[in-house]
Measured scan of single mutants.
Amino acid sequence: MAEQVALSRTQVCGILREELFQGDAFHQSDTHIFIIMGASGDLAKKKIYPTIWWLFRDGLLPENTFIVGYARSRLTVADIRKQSEPFFKATPEEKLKLEDFFARNSYVAGQYDDAASYQRLNSHMNALHLGSQANRLFYLALPPTVYEAVTKNIHESCMSQIGWNRIIVEKPFGRDLQSSDRLSNHISSLFREDQIYRIDHYLGKEMVQNLMVLRFANRIFGPIWNRDNIACVILTFKEPFGTEGRGGYFDEFGIIRDVMQNHLLQMLCLVAMEKPASTNSDDVRDEKVKVLKCISEVQANNVVLGQYVGNPDGEGEATKGYLDDPTVPRGSTTATFAAVVLYVENERWDGVPFILRCGKALNERKAEVRLQFHDVAGDIFHQQCKRNELVIRVQPNEAVYTKMMTKKPGMFFNPEESELDLTYGNRYKNVKLPDAYERLILDVFCGSQMHFVRSDELREAWRIFTPLLHQIELEKPKPIPYIYGSRGPTEADELMKRVGFQYEGTYKWVNP
Rank of each mutant, 00 (worst) to 15 (best):
A2G: 08
V5W: 04
V5E: 12
A6I: 07
A6G: 04
L7A: 08
T10Y: 07
T10L: 07
Q11L: 06
Q11M: 07
V12C: 06
V12Q: 08
G14D: 10
I15A: 02
R17I: 08
R17G: 05
R17F: 09
E19K: 04
L20M: 15
F21K: 12
Q22P: 03
Q22L: 15
Q22M: 10
G23R: 12
G23V: 15
G23D: 15
D24P: 13
S29A: 12
S29V: 07
D30N: 15
D30M: 11
D30S: 08
D30E: 12
T31K: 13
H32P: 02
H32K: 04
H32E: 03
H32A: 10
I33R: 01
I33Q: 08
F34I: 15
I35M: 03
I36W: 00
M37F: 12
G38T: 00
A39C: 06
S40I: 06
G41P: 00
G41L: 05
D42T: 14
A44V: 04
A44R: 00
K45I: 09
I48N: 00
Y49K: 00
P50N: 03
T51G: 05
I52Q: 00
W53M: 00
W54F: 06
W54S: 06
W54C: 09
L55W: 00
L55Q: 09
F56P: 00
F56S: 02
F56W: 09
F56V: 02
D58S: 03
D58H: 06
G59W: 01
L60F: 07
L61S: 00
P62A: 07
N64D: 07
N64F: 05
N64S: 07
N64Y: 04
N64P: 05
N64L: 04
N64C: 06
T65Q: 01
T65E: 00
T65S: 11
F66Y: 15
F66L: 05
G69W: 04
G69S: 03
Y70Q: 02
Y70P: 00
S73Y: 05
R74N: 08
R74K: 13
L75P: 02
A78G: 09
A78K: 10
R81N: 03
P86I: 09
P86Q: 10
F87V: 03
F87L: 06
K89V: 07
K89M: 05
T91Q: 11
E93M: 06
E93A: 08
E93G: 06
E93L: 05
E93D: 06
E94F: 03
L96C: 08
K97N: 04
E99P: 02
E99V: 04
E99T: 05
E99H: 13
D100M: 14
D100T: 08
D100E: 01
F101S: 00
F102K: 01
F102L: 06
R104K: 08
N105Y: 06
S106I: 09
S106F: 12
Y107T: 03
Y107S: 07
V108C: 14
A109P: 08
A109D: 07
Q111P: 05
Y112K: 04
Y112Q: 02
Y112S: 04
Y112T: 04
D114F: 03
D114I: 05
A116E: 14
S117Q: 06
S117Y: 15
Y118I: 10
Q119G: 03
R120Q: 10
L121T: 00
N122A: 12
N122L: 02
N122W: 04
S123I: 07
S123P: 00
S123F: 05
S123V: 09
M125W: 00
A127L: 04
H129V: 12
H129G: 06
L130V: 10
L130H: 07
L130C: 08
L130T: 12
L130Y: 09
G131M: 04
S132F: 11
Q133C: 10
Q133N: 04
Q133T: 12
A134Q: 07
A134I: 10
A134L: 05
R136A: 03
L137Y: 03
L137Q: 03
F138G: 00
F138V: 02
F138D: 01
Y139M: 05
Y139A: 05
L140M: 11
A141Q: 03
A141R: 02
A141N: 12
L142E: 11
L142K: 03
P144F: 13
T145F: 12
V146N: 09
Y147H: 14
E148M: 12
E148Y: 07
V150R: 00
T151Y: 09
T151Q: 08
K152L: 12
N153M: 07
N153T: 03
I154K: 00
H155D: 06
H155V: 04
C158P: 00
M159S: 13
M159H: 11
S160F: 01
S160Q: 06
I162S: 09
I162M: 10
G163K: 03
G163Y: 01
N165D: 04
N165A: 06
N165I: 03
I167T: 03
I167E: 00
I167S: 00
I168L: 06
V169W: 06
V169Y: 05
E170F: 03
E170R: 10
K171Y: 08
K171T: 11
K171R: 14
P172C: 07
F173S: 10
G174F: 08
R175E: 11
R175D: 09
R175N: 14
D176F: 04
L177D: 05
L177E: 06
L177T: 09
Q178K: 12
Q178F: 09
Q178V: 14
S179H: 10
S180Q: 04
S180V: 06
D181V: 14
D181A: 07
D181H: 06
R182Q: 12
R182K: 08
L183H: 10
L183I: 09
N185V: 06
I187P: 03
I187D: 06
I187Y: 06
I187N: 09
S188L: 08
S188I: 06
S189K: 06
S189D: 12
S189E: 07
L190H: 09
F191T: 00
R192M: 10
E193L: 02
D194S: 09
I196D: 00
Y197G: 01
Y197T: 00
I199S: 06
I199D: 00
I199C: 05
I199R: 09
D200Q: 14
D200F: 06
D200C: 12
Y202D: 15
Y202C: 15
Y202Q: 14
Y202K: 14
L203M: 15
G204H: 14
G204K: 15
G204M: 15
G204P: 13
K205V: 15
K205L: 04
E206C: 13
Q209S: 14
N210K: 14
L211M: 14
L211R: 00
L211N: 01
M212P: 02
V213N: 13
L214M: 12
R215V: 01
A217E: 05
N218G: 00
R219W: 10
I220S: 03
F221D: 01
G222Y: 11
P223F: 01
P223M: 07
I224P: 04
W225Q: 00
N226G: 13
D228S: 07
N229R: 00
A231G: 12
C232T: 09
C232Y: 04
C232W: 02
C232K: 13
L235D: 02
T236V: 02
F237C: 08
K238Y: 15
K238S: 13
K238F: 15
E239W: 08
P240R: 07
F241Y: 11
G242H: 09
T243V: 14
E244T: 06
E244G: 12
E244M: 10
E244W: 08
G245H: 12
G245P: 09
R246C: 14
R246S: 13
G248K: 14
G248Y: 13
G248L: 12
Y249W: 14
Y249V: 15
F250T: 05
D251I: 00
E252V: 09
E252I: 04
E252N: 09
G254C: 07
G254Y: 00
I255P: 07
I255Y: 02
I256K: 01
I256F: 03
I256L: 14
R257N: 15
R257W: 03
